[in-house]
C-alpha cells in the first residue's frame, strides 16, 4: 500500500524496494506495541491457515489411497521425518514435531511472501533470529542435559594430533557461536534480497523502453525465488537436524 502511494507521489522512476518490509498495524495508525495486530500477525496467521488446510483438512478423510492434497501432506511428513531420522539418528525422531513446526512455518511464510502485495515474515531478522536462537539454545541445553560436561568434547577434536587440538577447539568454539548468526542471516538475507531485487525490477518496469526486459527479469527472479523459498526452508531445517545431531551425539 505504502509503495503504491510513493510511486504516485513522486512519479517517474522511483525505487522503494524496502517498503514492502515495513511492519505496520492492520487497524489504525498507532505505534507498534508488542501486542498490536500488524501485517506480521496477518501473514503468520495465514501460514497457520495453510498448515491447517494442508495437514489437517487434507488428511481428514484418512484415505488409504490418498488424494492429491493428502499425498502432499504425506510427502512433507515423510520428507522431514526421513531427514530427521537420517541426520539426527533414531533418537532424534522424538524431536520431529519441533523440526516439522520450524520447516512448515518457514516454507509457508516464504511461499506466502511470494504472493503479490504480500509481507514476508521470514525476511525479518527479528523473526529468523528468534528461530535460530531457539534452535541454538535448545540444542545447547539439550547437549548439556544429555551429556553433562562431556558435551564439551564436541570442541575437542580427538581425531586431530594433540598439539593442534587447542587451536581447533578455539575454532570450533567460534564456529559454534557463529551458527545462530549464519543460520538466521542466511534465511532473512535470502528472502529480503530476492524480494528487494524483484521490487527494483518492478521500478524499472515503469519505463516503457525497458519494461519488457524488466518484466522478463521479474519473471525469472520470481522463478528463482520459488526455488530459493523452498531451498532456504530446507537448508534451515537440515542445519537444525545437524545441530541436533551434535547435541545427541557430540563425540563425532
Amino acid at each position: 500500500m505504502a509503495t503504491e502511494e510513493h510511486g504516485a507521489e513522486s512519479g517517474g522512476l522511483v525505487f522503494h524496494p524496502m517498503d514492502q518490509f515495513i511492519v505496520k498495524p492492520m487497524f489504525g495508525d498507532g505505534p507498534v506495541a508488542w501486542y498490536t495486530v500488524t501485517n506480521v500477525t496477518l501473514w503468520m496467521a495465514l501460514a497457520v491457515v495453510c498448515v491447517l488446510l494442508m495437514f489437517v483438512l487434507a488428511t481428514s478423510r484418512r484415505r488409504i489411497v490418498p488424494g492429491r492434497f493428502q499425498s502432499v501432506a504425506e510427502l512433507g511428513y515423510g520428507f522431514i521425518y526421513k531427514m530427521v531420522e537420517d541426520i539426527a539418528g533414531k533418537d532424534g525422531v522424538k524431536y520431529f514435531p519441533y523440526i516439522m513446526t520450524l520447516f512448515l512455518f518457514i516454507v509457508f511464510a516464504n511461499f506466502l511472501g511470494l504472493l503479490p502485495m504480500a509481507f514476508t515474515t521470514t525476511s525479518h531478522i527479528a523473526v529468523t533470529a528468534v528461530l535460530a536462537m531457539g534452535v541454538f539454545l535448545t540444542v545447547t541445553i539439550l547437549g548439556f542435559v544429555l551429556h553433562g560436561a562431556s558435551f564439551l568434547k564436541l570442541f575437542w577434536v580427538s581425531a586431530a594430533p594433540l598439539p593442534i587440538r587447542p587451536v581447533l577447539a578455539v575454532i570450533e568454539l567460534i564456529s559454534y557461536f557463529a551458527r545462530p548468526v549464519s543460520h538466521s542471516i542466511r534465511l532473512a538475507g535470502n528472502m529480503m534480497a530476492g524480494h528487494a531485487v524483484i521490487k527494483v525490477f518492478a521500478g524499472f518496469a515503469a519505463l516503457a523502453a525497458i519494461s519488457p526486459f524488466a518484466i522478463l527479469a521479474i519473471t525469472a527472479m520470481y522463478g528463482l525465488e520459488i526455488l530459493v523459498s523452498f531451498i532456504q526452508a530446507y537448508v534451515f531445517t537440515i542445519l537444525t537436524c545437524v545441530y541436533l545431531k551434535d547435541a545427541l551425539h557430540p563425540h563425532h
Binding site: 524496502m18 517498503d19 518490509f21 515495513i22 511492519v23 505505534p31 507498534v32 506495541a33 508488542w34 501486542y35 498490536t36 500488524t38 506480521v40 500477525t41 503468520m44 496467521a45 501460514a47 497457520v48 498448515v51 491447517l52 495437514f55 489437517v56 514435531p97 519441533y98 516439522m100 513446526t101 520450524l102 512448515l104 512455518f105 515474515t121 525476511s123 525479518h124 531478522i125 527479528a126 523473526v127 528468534v130 528461530l131 532473512a188 529480503m192
Partner: peptide, 27 residues
Amino acid sequence: MPQLDFSTFPNQIFWLVVTLVVIYLIL
C-alpha cells in the same frame, strides 16, 4: 532497512512465538 527498526521487534517476536506454538499444537 525496516528490518533494523527495533521498535517492531517485540511485536514480531510475540506473534512469531504465538504462531509457532499454534503450529506446534496443530501438528
